[in-house]
C-alpha cells in the first residue's frame, strides 16, 4: 500500500500570497510542491454530511408518505376514526378502536409479565451472580433478542398455544374466572397468548437497559448503604433501585415501544378478530396485525387509506414513546447526580 506521501497530488493550487520581498522557506516550498487536498477534503466532508442528512430525509419521506396516503380517511372520519368500533370494508365504514384496544391490552399483558422478570434478572446479573456466570447469562438474554419475530410466532403456534390451552388456561379460569378476565372460550390463541409471546420478546430490551442503568449507579452508593449495616436486598433497594428508578422506567417504556409495533408473532397468535371484550382468552386484533393481514387484500382506496392511517398512528405513537424512553434513560446514564433520600 502506498504511503500518504508517495504520490504528489495532481491538483496544484496557487499558493497564498507571501508578504512582498520575502523568500519562501524550504518547508513551505516542499509543502507547496505537494499541492493541496482541500478539494478532496471538502468533497469528503460534504459526502458524509449528505449521507447523514439522508437519514433525516428518509424519516421525513416516510412521514409525508404516510400522511399523504391516508388523506382519504383523515378527511372523511377525522378523529372519529380512532373512536369508531365498526370495521366494515365492504360498506366503507372504518373505526380503529378494536385494534387500538388489542394493541394496548396485549402490550399491557406483556409488560405485566416482563417487567418483574426483567428487573429480577437484572438484579441477579448485576448484584448477585458470581462473576463467571455474568457474561454467559447476559449473552443468553441477548440471544432472546436475536431470535426473529417469525420464529417466535412459529414456536408460539405449535408450543405455547397448546400449552396455554391444555394446562395454563384451565387453571386461570378456575382461579380467576370470577374476574371476567379468564372465561370461556378457551381456544389457546387470543390476547393472553399474544401478551405472553410479546413479553418474551421485550424482555431482553428491558433487561439489557435496566442492567446498564443499574451498573451506572456509583459504587459509593452501594458501599454507603452497606456501611450502615444494610442487608444485600436493602442495599439493592435503597442504594441501587432507588437511584436507577428513572432509568428503569425509561427501559420499560422502550420495551412498550417495541411491544406496540411488534407484528409477526402477534399476528400469528392473537386470533385476528376485531372485537372489544374484557376476556383475555378471547381472540383480538392489533394495529400491526390488521395491516399485515389485510393490506394486500385492500381493494379500494378508502380501505387502503384506513390501513395506512393505522400505520401512521402507530408511527406517531412509537416516536413519542421512544423519545420519552430515550430521554429518561439518558437522564440517568449521563450526568444526572445520584440522589439519596
Amino acid at each position: 500500500m502506498p504511503g500518504p506521501f508517495d504520490t504528489p497530488d495532481p491538483v496544484k493550487q496557487t499558493p497564498p500570497a507571501l508578504p512582498p520581498g520575502q523568500e519562501p522557506s524550504a518547508i513551505r516550498k516542499f509543502l507547496l510542491s505537494r499541492g493541496s487536498s482541500a478539494l478532496a477534503d471538502r468533497g469528503f466532508r460534504w459526502l458524509m454530511i449528505g449521507c447523514a442528512l439522508s437519514i433525516f430525509a428518509i424519516v421525513a419521506l416516510i412521514a409525508t408518505e404516510l400522511v399523504m396516503r391516508s388523506q382519504l380517511t383523515i378527511a372523511k372520519f377525522g378523529l372519529k376514526f380512532f373512536f369508531g368500533t365498526a370495521w366494515d370494508p365492504v360498506n366503507g365504514d372504518f373505526g380503529a378502536l378494536p385494534f387500538i384496544y388489542g394493541t394496548l391490552v396485549s402490550s399491557a399483558v406483556a409488560l405485566v409479565i416482563a417487567v418483574p422478570l426483567a428487573v429480577g434478572v437484572s438484579i441477579f446479573i448485576t448484584e448477585m451472580c458470581p462473576k463467571f456466570l455474568r457474561g454467559p447469562l447476559s449473552f443468553l438474554t441477548e440471544l432472546l433478542a436475536a431470535i426473529p419475530s417469525v420464529v417466535y410466532g412459529l414456536w408460539a403456534i405449535f408450543v405455547l398455544v397448546p400449552l396455554l390451552r391444555e394446562h395454563v388456561n384451565p387453571v386461570l379460569m378456575k382461579l380467576f374466572g370470577w374476574s371476567g378476565l379468564f372465561v370461556e372460550p378457551n381456544f389457546g390463541i387470543g390476547m393472553l397468548a399474544a401478551g405472553v409471546i410479546l413479553s418474551i420478546m421485550i424482555l431482553p430490551v428491558i433487561s439489557s437497559l435496566t442492567r446498564e442503568v443499574m451498573t451506572s449507579v456509583p459504587h459509593s452508593q452501594r458501599e454507603a448503604v452497606l456501611a450502615l449495616g444494610a442487608t444485600r436486598w436493602e442495599m439493592i433497594r435503597m442504594g441501587v433501585l432507588r437511584n436507577a428508578r428513572i432509568g428503569i422506567v425509561g427501559s420499560i417504556i422502550l420495551g412498550l415501544g417495541r411491544a406496540l409495533g411488534e407484528t409477526m408473532a402477534v399476528t400469528m397468535v392473537i386470533g385476528n378478530r376485531p372485537d372489544i371484550v374484557k376476556n383475555l382468552l378471547a381472540p383480538g386484533y392489533s394495529m400491526a396485525s390488521v395491516i399485515a393481514n389485510e393490506f394486500s387484500e385492500a381493494s379500494d382506496d378508502m380501505y387502503l387509506s384506513a390501513l395506512i392511517e393505522i400505520g401512521l398512528a402507530l408511527f406517531i405513537v412509537t416516536i413519542i414513546v421512544n423519545a420519552l424512553a430515550r430521554l429518561l434513560v439518558w437522564a440517568v446514564t449521563r450526568g444526572a447526580p445520584a440522589r439519596v433520600n
Binding site: 433525516f56 408511527f315 412509537t318
Partner: peptide
C-alpha cells in the same frame, strides 16, 4: 445542532415498527 438532529432521527428510524416500514416502502 445538525448532529443532534441526525442522531435523534436515527433513533426515531430505529423505533419505527417494521410493518410501518413495509407500508412506507410499498407506497414509495
Amino acid at each position: 445542532k445538525l448532529a443532534n438532529i441526525v442522531r435523534f432521527t436515527a433513533d426515531v428510524l430505529n423505533g419505527v415498527p417494521s410493518i410501518v416500514m413495509g407500508i412506507s416502502v410499498y407506497s414509495l
